[in-house]
Amino acid sequence: MGIQVRFFPFHLQYRYFPWKKIKKVSIRSYSPITEYSGWGLRIGMFGRGKAYNISGNIGLQLVFKDGKRLLIGTQKSAEIKQFLKNKKLTP
């Protein structure tokens, strides 16, 4: 079990992130311009990690046990919040 994401056309196959490698998961607001210099497949400055985002300013923030970070932009934050709550991954 884990999270799968595909950011087409950059990823032709899904990327899989197993729960056992994830230290923390949360939904958060972010600034695409100031944090990641825009939209798309981005690498943030100053330890913010990578971002996969198309539009909007809400994302699923993953912090991995090795310290790396990935922000996945979403237009369905309510559904993701409910999923995480049902899985007891957030308070």
Score class of each variant (00 low, 15 high):
Gly2Ile: 02
Gln4Gly: 07
Gln4Cys: 09
Arg6Ile: 12
Arg6Thr: 06
Phe8Asp: 10
Phe8Val: 14
Pro9Thr: 11
Pro9Lys: 04
Phe10Pro: 01
Phe10Tyr: 13
His11Asp: 10
His11Tyr: 02
Leu12His: 14
Gln13Tyr: 04
Pro18Ser: 06
Trp19Val: 11
Lys20Thr: 15
Lys20Asn: 15
Lys20Phe: 13
Lys21Met: 15
Lys21Gly: 13
Lys21Leu: 14
Ile22Gln: 07
Ile22Asn: 05
Ile22His: 09
Lys24Asp: 15
Val25His: 04
Val25Cys: 09
Ser26Thr: 12
Ser26Tyr: 01
Ser26His: 02
Ile27Pro: 04
Arg28Val: 13
Ser29Lys: 11
Tyr30Glu: 01
Ser31Tyr: 05
Pro32Glu: 04
Pro32Tyr: 04
Glu35Ser: 04
Tyr36Leu: 03
Ser37Trp: 08
Gly38Tyr: 04
Trp39Asn: 06
Gly40Asn: 07
Gly40Ala: 04
Leu41Pro: 03
Ile43Asn: 10
Ile43His: 10
Ile43Ser: 11
Phe46Trp: 08
Phe46Lys: 11
Gly47Trp: 12
Arg48Gln: 08
Ala51Pro: 04
Tyr52Ala: 01
Tyr52Ile: 02
Tyr52Thr: 00
Asn53Gln: 06
Ile54Thr: 15
Gly56Asp: 03
Gly56Trp: 05
Asn57Thr: 12
Asn57Gly: 13
Asn57Pro: 05
Asn57Arg: 08
Gly59Thr: 00
Gly59Glu: 02
Gly59Val: 01
Leu60Ser: 11
Leu60Gly: 12
Leu62Asn: 06
Leu62Gln: 03
Val63Lys: 08
Val63Gln: 14
Val63Pro: 00
Val63Cys: 09
Lys65Asp: 11
Lys65Leu: 13
Asp66Phe: 12
Gly67Tyr: 00
Gly67Thr: 02
Arg69Glu: 14
Arg69Gly: 10
Arg69Lys: 15
Ile72Thr: 02
Gly73Asp: 05
Thr74His: 02
Thr74Lys: 00
Ala78Tyr: 11
Glu79Asn: 14
Glu79Tyr: 08
Ile80Trp: 00
Ile80Ser: 03
Lys81Thr: 06
Gln82Phe: 00
Phe83Asp: 12
Leu84Thr: 09
Leu84Lys: 09
Leu84Asn: 11
Lys85Arg: 15
Lys85Phe: 07
Lys85Ala: 13
Asn86Cys: 05
Lys87Cys: 10
Lys87Ser: 14
Lys88His: 11
Pro91Met: 12
